[in-house]
Simulated scan of single mutants.
Amino acid sequence: MASSTRIEVGEGGVPLVLLMHFRGNLDYWDPALIDALAEGRRVIAFDNTGVGGSSGITPSTVAQMALDAIAFLDALDLAQADILGFSLGSFVAQEIALIRPALVRRLVLASAAPQGAPGMHGWAKWVIDSVGEPEVVPAKVLDVFYTQSPESRTAGEKAFGRMFSRAEFDAPTTWQTRQAQYDAVSTWGIPNFSLLERVTAIQAPVFIANGDSDPMILPRYSHLLAGLIPDAEIKIYPDAGHGFLFQHHEEFAGDVKRFLDRA
């Protein structure tokens, strides 16, 4: 398999593996969230094939991304893990749970939608224009990840400050990664009602979360997903866009830890 860059913090318990959003590398995980999640457990974040500092070519399907992630976990000799997937990472997390059910103990899906949901075929033009151009403009990313309220925008600026204050940085994602990942996102969103049934086979307990104003993965898709997966839990965080888990990092981390630690 391709060599993968990763970060590991914390120790103890079943490892929690993090799967990143569209165009994101390790730098885009908020250290405040990582530190909160790592209290009492091992947390692993990594660049999947072709992303950031990892070798190989980024695949253009969610299914192959899931197989690559499984290969990474196999290389770490992880027989079981908790999985937290964010945005595109939540699509990959669903596939991992379907391809290898025994690997996934519990599943956290942040800003998530099921495959085949009508209206999910690509993002609104202003959204992809904001996050999909060759040069990433932080102000435009803030418009997608946070709301226009002073509280949300300030939280976003603070999160950006935490993300990009590290001593060492990951390799930036390439245009090939951008194109392949958006192909995967668009294919995932081709309307197909029969594909919605797939997630009913997920066996692991599932916690679904989103922001109430997420313009990338509208909250209704997270509600749809929660309705399809047996006994799934869902929480919608207020005054929050796509970056709700960074804006509400303390609350979200607490909710995740309670879900993972539940008997």
Rank of each mutant, 00 (worst) to 15 (best):
H249V: 10
F244R: 13
Q247W: 06
F160L: 15
L228A: 08
L196M: 05
I202R: 06
E251H: 06
A232T: 09
R198F: 05
R178N: 05
R178A: 08
Y182L: 12
Y221G: 08
Q247V: 05
Q203L: 00
P230H: 10
R166M: 11
Q203I: 00
M163H: 02
F246P: 01
N192K: 13
R162A: 05
R220C: 07
F160W: 12
I217R: 01
P219N: 02
V256M: 13
Y237K: 04
L225P: 04
I234K: 07
A232G: 14
G254A: 14
L225A: 06
K158Q: 15
V185C: 11
P219G: 05
T154I: 00
I208C: 11
A159S: 15
S186M: 08
M163P: 00
S165I: 02
Q176R: 11
D255R: 10
G161V: 11
G211Q: 08
S165D: 11
T154V: 00
F252V: 15
T177A: 15
T154M: 01
T173P: 01
N210S: 14
M163Y: 01
Q176C: 01
H223G: 03
V185G: 03
N210L: 10
A232E: 07
T177C: 14
P215C: 04
E250H: 13
E250I: 15
T173E: 03
A184W: 07
V199H: 04
D255W: 13
W175R: 13
S194Y: 07
R198M: 10
N210P: 04
I208T: 08
S165A: 13
D231I: 00
V256S: 12
A171Q: 00
L225N: 08
A232C: 12
F160K: 03
Y182K: 06
P230W: 07
E250M: 13
L228H: 09
T177P: 03
S152M: 15
E168Q: 11
Q179S: 13
A180D: 07
A240I: 12
I202N: 09
Q179W: 08
G189Q: 03
I236M: 05
E251N: 08
A159D: 00
Y237W: 08
D183V: 11
R166V: 09
G227D: 14
N192T: 07
P205K: 10
E168N: 03
T187G: 09
I217Y: 01
